[in-house]
Computed example of a mutant assay.
Amino acid sequence: MAQKAQKTQAARNSATLNRTHLISLGVYFFFILLRTLFFTRRLLPFLMFAAPAMFIEFWFERIGRPTYTETANGKELKRAGEDLEAKGLTEWMWDVLYWTWGCTVLAALLGNRAWWLYAGVPLYSGYLAFTTYSGMRQGFAGPSGGNGGESGGASGGQSKRQAKMEKRGGPRVQYRQ
């Protein structure tokens, strides 16, 4: 069972990509069907807002689809593809893709004003950037967290555990200077 982890990731990536393409096809077909048969929806906003999702799908296909080589024993895994469940940018791209699908369905059902919900993407991106920046700023403050050398509210450079032990009357710890 050589490369079991890579084979598992390749199977998971293939299934995820196939499911993503089917859902995307269904959502876009639903929009086009309702637009043509029942309502008059503008096509330009659909094309503008679906373009990032289509680019993201193309990107996932490019980096995540496993590749195989033909050998005498049959197909052999050449590359498993990148992990499509990774944190960070990949996770954000999945969020944009899901949000686009939701906005597309709502625009098909409720009308062209539903495209204004797509403004949530830059707002969400700004929120993520702010929380990332805040976390980095706290990380650069050092282990004290920027609160003047006190560690977690304990006084005198003690850890919380040592402060609790002294408060209970347990063995006192003496520090050398």
Rank of each mutant, 00 (worst) to 15 (best):
Q158T: 03
N112L: 02
G157I: 07
M54H: 09
F46E: 01
M1K: 04
A163R: 15
Q6K: 12
E150I: 04
Q174H: 09
G146P: 11
R168Q: 08
G102K: 00
G102P: 03
N73M: 05
V105Q: 06
K78M: 06
T20S: 13
C103L: 04
F29W: 02
Y133L: 12
D95S: 15
Q158Y: 11
I23N: 08
R65I: 03
Y127K: 12
Q158H: 15
L22G: 02
Y98P: 04
G88M: 11
L33M: 12
P171Q: 11
A80P: 10
F140R: 12
Q158I: 01
L22Y: 02
L34D: 07
Q9V: 02
T104Q: 07
T100I: 00
T16K: 12
A72F: 01
M136C: 04
R19Y: 02
S151M: 14
N73F: 01
S24C: 00
M93H: 13
N147L: 04
E166V: 04
F49L: 09
A154T: 00
R161V: 01
R41Y: 11
G170S: 04
T67Y: 10
K75S: 06
A163T: 07
R113Y: 09
E61L: 13
Q162I: 05
L89F: 15
L43Q: 12
L89Y: 14
F46V: 00
L47V: 09
L34Y: 11
A51Q: 07
A141C: 01
L37I: 13
Y127A: 08
L117P: 10
K7I: 03
L37G: 08
G74P: 13
F130H: 08
A10R: 13
V105H: 09
I56D: 07
